[in-house]
Amino acid sequence: MKKTVLFVLSFVVWLFLTAPFHPQGVDWQSFGVGLVVSFLVGLIFGEMFTETPHKFLWVSRYLWALYYLPVFAYACLLANLDVAYRVLHPALPIRPGIVKVKSRLRSKSGLTALANSITLTPGTMSVEVTEDGYLYIHWINVLSQDVEEASRLIVERFERILERIFE
């Protein structure tokens, strides 16, 4: 099961890289090479890749991931306008600090995705993640030093969706 997941994933990446389906026909040579190589990769490294392969079969996770994409893109754009404003403002309006927030997510992939999302969204960057779901966030404009309040402001909007994708 674990090996199959890695096989399919590496084969999809190979298809994207080589794009063997041309309008004038299929390039069977690169298609075959990819098949063999991803089979070997899956066979050798399958055990290292994921701990919960059954999650890859839930279709609803992919739909939530699709919904997450525009939410994330919008937050990312806001983040950049925010940074541009702070950087170009003559008085440099920043109030930085490191705050602690709590997350409901427990799976490693979920926490990783959350930390990465936080880094790319307005004014926040994850500095440290602990196993029990606490994140230390560097905030460029600290609005609250309280754990609950900061969690509500930073984490919650992503957590709702990421919970359905990764947990």
Binding site: A79, N80, V83, R86, V87, G123
Partner: peptide
């Protein structure tokens, strides 16, 4: 610009990561 203007490594990383990624 953020990399040059902001004061410490954490703020600089913020500007560098966000803007350069997008």
């Amino acid at each position: 610009v953020g990399l040059v203007r902001l004061p410490d490594i954490y703020n600089r990383l913020q500007a560098a990561t966000k803007c350069v990624t997008l």
